[in-house]
Design a protein around this nucleic acid. Structure first.
Lengths: 338, 338
DNA sequence: CTGTTAGCGCCTTCAA
DNA sequence: TTGAAGGCGCTAACAG
């Protein structure tokens, strides 16, 4: 076994030598472009297989001076980001683009994450739940097409693909209103991406239902802890229903309520957001608002692909429709409200 | 702004031209190796800055015929994998190695994930929670050093860095025994990485406590659903305590128990595994067994770094000690057991 | 201390 | 259909 001793990976030269043809021919055959006899084609394939040859990506992309690679930043701690990344891989399998991942974490700033992607000369960047400033984003967009998922920015240089969170929030609140709730609180997401829209949607729906007086904003966040910490305020406010920023915080809230002997949905109904694993799990079986990850991913990829050559003319805003999923954390109010 | 119109990224030639020196000199200066006058050094830095130049990684790594990059595969759906990846980035910041991520998902097999890493000529592979067969792993190891995290394999070609799960399980069970429990069940992890060791540890600890007769294995898994589904069996078995495969399944189990009016820890104590976000959250505040992610990550990186040149002589098995973290899902049994 | 030269592994004309 | 030559952007060994 000459490749165990000689650990260096096989190159195109090795394949050419073994097949007894020129390097160029190997390249032609392996890329599947016309220009080789069937006999040679077979020889090359055989040789490549024998050597378990795979072209060096670095050389491949460098050589043709294109990377055909899109860079993706995402939060390692954020479960919904993971689902989007999965969806991106699913969609990109069909396209002729590769994906390169660059995680964001408390110890790895988003700027560093994008920089490393740029160092590989990615031809486009997909930023999931970015928290970069508009200025930083536009600086990036000057170098390479950028599309945001799960976050909005008003700039003609940056494409945005997102769910209509205002509509999503309204879906949630309308559902609760229809069930007969009036004291509906919102445990919001603070400054997190998308939180502002969900607040807006909540307010709109409440006003439209004539419940202006019952609008109750409660400090929250995106983690279980944040939901947990909001429980006291929910109880104090005498709400019979809560719309939470996301499923995670809803889960923490539900836990705390139940621990305080406030049954869910018996005494308080709860609606989450994202239709995450947690919400789907029988442990919570949570009524929630689902985003269409596959659609978002697909559109993001399409936008980036279409940006080749065309620089940031006018950016597009793709807005996907959310969907309410009714499970078992919501029901009609038992107690009439004061 | 010539770089907005000319969108092509600056190359080393551009920098050299602007600084009025040769390309080689630029390379020397930018790499920080000796061999340039201070005057030129300054000029090069200035030029590079003006052009906001960053070397092309593909060319850089290709040129010196080393990638100085380790590839990492991980499960997008697995929260503990995310924590390990974070730890890897933390440790690698100190080393002279880059990391390249390649996710595993239902639609992206682990083999494809590793292949893509190999295509970039990573100099080492870190496989988190791999589910490849021993044969597949050894084939990989023939091409490049491989280290496994969170999974064991008995091969002299493959390094393993893991927590002593047998000890971890014993920690959990001993804790319950000391509290006075006797009917202690184990909701196990099935065929998932690490599950076998945890079963072994559970059995050992039970026997050692003279509780052979009370050994109760209950079908589980790694998700909330699996824990949820195990609840009926736990109740049926009349257990006063449960050691679960991991925090996620423990959470599902706790939810179901509470819903069935079986208080935790009042009627049943529960110990999880991993000290994940869920366990730490006040919503669960779970007694659990913690793995030292930072240590695992650091040792994995060290092993790979030391494997340069030295082929798979004898593989090492690094075993980290787990730690019991007592929180509020465990207490002394109230009901005496039959 | 500087610049020239020759690769790294692949792709892409172009002529044979 | 095939092979030779040049280039991608960078590094590194070598003379000047």
């Amino acid at each position: 076994m000459d490749q165990a001793s000689d650990k260096r990976a096989a190159t195109i030269n090795d394949v050419a030598a073994r097949a007894g043809v020129s390097r160029a021919l190997v390249s032609i055959v392996l890329r599947g472009v016309p220009g080789a006899s069937d006999a040679n084609r077979a020889k090359v394939f055989q040789a490549a297989k024998d050597l378990s040859y795979r072209p060096d990506q670095r050389a491949r992309l460098l050589g043709r001076n294109r990377s055909t690679t899109f860079g993706v930043t995402f939060g390692l701690r954020d479960e919904t980001h993971g689902e989007l990344v999965e969806a991106l891989y699913r969609s990109s399998a069909l396209a002729d683009y590769e994906l390169m991942l660059s995680p964001v974490a408390p110890t790895r700033h988003e700027i560093d994450a994008t920089q490393s992607l740029l160092d590989y000369r990615c031809e486009g960047l997909i930023l999931i739940g970015s928290s970069l400033s508009k200025g930083e984003l536009e600086t990036l967009a000057d170098r390479v097409p950028v599309v945001l998922i799960t976050r909005t920015v008003h700039s003609d240089k940056i494409d945005v693909v997102r769910t209509d969170d205002i509509a999503g929030a309204r879906l949630a609140v309308d559902h609760l209103v229809q069930l007969g709730h009036r004291n509906i609180a919102h445990v919001h997401g603070g400054r997190v991406a998308g939180a502002a829209d969900r607040r807006t949607g909540y307010r709109q729906a409440m006003r439209q239902a004539g419940l202006d007086a019952h609008i109750t904003m409660i400090e929250g966040g995106r983690t279980e802890d944040d939901g947990w910490n909001a429980a006291q305020s929910v109880i104090a406010a005498g709400s019979t229903a809560v719309f939470a920023y996301n499923d995670q915080s809803a889960a923490g809230l539900i836990e705390h309520l139940r621990k305080a002997a406030v049954t869910v949905p018996g005494r308080v109904s709860v609606v989450g957001y994202d239709n995450s694993r947690l919400a789907r799990s029988p442990a919570f079986s949570m009524t929630t608002v689902a985003q269409d990850s596959d659609l978002l991913a697909q559109r993001a990829l399409e936008l980036l692909s279409s940006r080749r050559g065309t620089p940031h003319t006018d950016a597009e805003q793709v807005v996907a429709r959310p969907q309410l999923i009714t499970r078992s954390t919501t029901t009609t109010p038992k107690t009439s409200v004061r």
